[in-house]
Structure formats: C-alpha cells, structure tokens
C-alpha cells in the first residue's frame, strides 16, 4: 500500500510571544521555533503504520522553502521512503488552492492508494489543501478522521461530530483522508533511522512563480481584547461563594 503524506513546516505559536509585521501582513518569525504541523505528524504516523501492516512505500510531499528539509528529514528518519519538496518562488503568496494544485501536479506520475494530510495547519488554519487536492485529482476524500481501520482496498473512517456524535464512513482507494490529532501516537525517529535518512532522496521541484490563487490575505491582526477578568473582593469564604455561583451559572458545577 503506497501512501503520500503532505506535511507543512509551521512556527510554534502556542506559547510564543507573537508580533505582526504590518507591512507584509505576516508574523515576525525570527524568534520563533519551527517544526512539523502537529496534525501532519499524526498523518505521517498513520501512513507509517499502514506501511508496517501492508508494505509499500510512504512518500512525503511538502510545499515550502529549503528550511522545510528539517521536517522532511525527520519524516524520512521515522521511516518514510522518499520525499518531494516543491519550492515555488512566490511561496508566501500562495493560497490553499494554489498549494493543492502544485501537489496535484507532482502526484500525476505517482502511484498511491491513500493521500494523508493533517486536518488543519496551525499557522493559517485553512483545512483546505487535502480537500482541494482530492477534488483536483478526482478522488474521494474524508476530512477530520479520528479513527481509521484499513483493509487492502478500502478503509472505515470515523469522524467526530458536535454533541458527542460519531459518524462512520467507508471509502474505497484511492482517497484523501485528513487526519485529526490524537488518532494515533506519533513515534520518535530512532537514531538508526536518523543515520539512514541522509541517504534517502528529497526531490526538489522549483516551478518558478505560480499564480492560481483564489483568496488573498487582507490583514493580520490581534483582535481587540474582550471583557477584562472580574476580580472578586471579600473574605475567602465570600469570594469562594461567588466563584461557585459563577461556575454554577456556566453549568460547570
């Protein structure tokens, strides 16, 4: 079973102090640490698990600058067979549709049963590349998978819905599945895997300037702060009572 995994290098923003570069409508990234997008890490793990069970090959694809090789090499160290990095000149201007189109173009000559992506990128949050890719390739897709059982030519996939509902689908290959975090337990690369990664191929594709975008970023900003926290005054017993009151009204007690 051959799988393609689309991965993205993103800045780790959860606990960082962020600044916006107003002129360029983007984050100042000089002081940020970059890594693989979290959901993509689960997507990669799913592909590696299938390769262990069914054999075949895992091919990693990423659209990004040369620095993307850091996360690509780690994916190769974990067990992916080879990689394709697509580096267009106008990378920062690309929208999800353009990225999906670039990937679709590169996959024309590849043989695959499944394409995995993370369900969402933590930097731009579009959740669209996987879905657009499936449309462009004319194959089935399911998004936000939380559980997956795979057979030779099909998979049963669970999607979690609001209100605690679980929806289960069956789909035949080839297909695109976008993966939620928590679906599996991503492995660490072993040292032997790291030693072997250096000899694996990273094919670099440079399509030049690419302009197929459908949406354009207008502005990046921090939303104005909401209502400030309320500070309760009084003795510990009184304030505890007030806190309990609030928790009760919010349905938490």
């Amino acid at each position: 079973m051959n799988s393609v995994v689309c991965i993205k290098r993103v800045p780790e923003t959860a606990e960082a102090t962020l600044k916006i570069d107003p002129a360029n409508r983007k984050l100042e990234v000089d002081n940020l640490v970059f890594g693989i997008n979290e959901a993509d890490n689960y997507a990669l793990e799913q592909a590696l698990l299938l390769e262990e069970e069914f054999g075949g090959e895992v091919i990693v694809v990423s659209v990004g600058p040369p620095e993307t090789d850091e996360i690509i090499r780690m994916a190769l160290a974990k067990g992916a067979g080879r990689a394709i990095r697509i580096s267009p000149e106008n990378l920062s201007e690309l929208d999800p549709y353009s990225i999906a189109k670039l990937i679709a173009h590169e996959l024309e000559d590849e043989e695959y049963d499944l394409i995995f992506t993370g369900c969402q990128a933590s930097d731009d949050g579009f959740s669209q590349v996987g879905v657009a890719l499936a449309e462009l390739l004319g194959i089935q897709h399911l998004s936000m998978a939380v559980k997956m059982e795979t057979e030779e030519e099909s998979a049963t996939v669970n999607r979690e819905l609001e209100g605690g509902l679980m929806a289960q689908y069956k789909l035949n290959f080839p297909a695109v599945i976008t993966i939620q975090t928590g679906l599996n337990e991503p492995r660490y690369a072993s040292i032997l895997g790291i030693k072997r990664a250096g000899s694996k191929e990273i094919r670099v594709v440079e399509p030049g300037s690419w302009n197929e975008k459908m949406v354009e970023l207008n502005k990046l900003s921090f939303p104005p702060p909401g209502k400030m926290a309320e500070i309760f005054q009084g003795s510990p017993a009184e304030t505890a009572e007030k806190v309990c009151e609030v928790l009760k009204t919010k349905g938490l007690l």
């Binding site: 890594g35 850091e70 090499r73 780690m74 160290a77 660490y188 690369a189 040292i191 790291i194 030693k195 990664a197 250096g198």
Partner: peptide, 14 residues
Amino acid sequence: TDDQKLLQKMVRDF
C-alpha cells in the same frame, strides 16, 4: 551536521 540536528530535535522532543 544534519544528523546531529535531527538527533538534537528528536531527543529534545522526547
């Protein structure tokens, strides 16, 4: 080296 950088990242995450 590339290998040493990967090792550092792997051990740091671990």
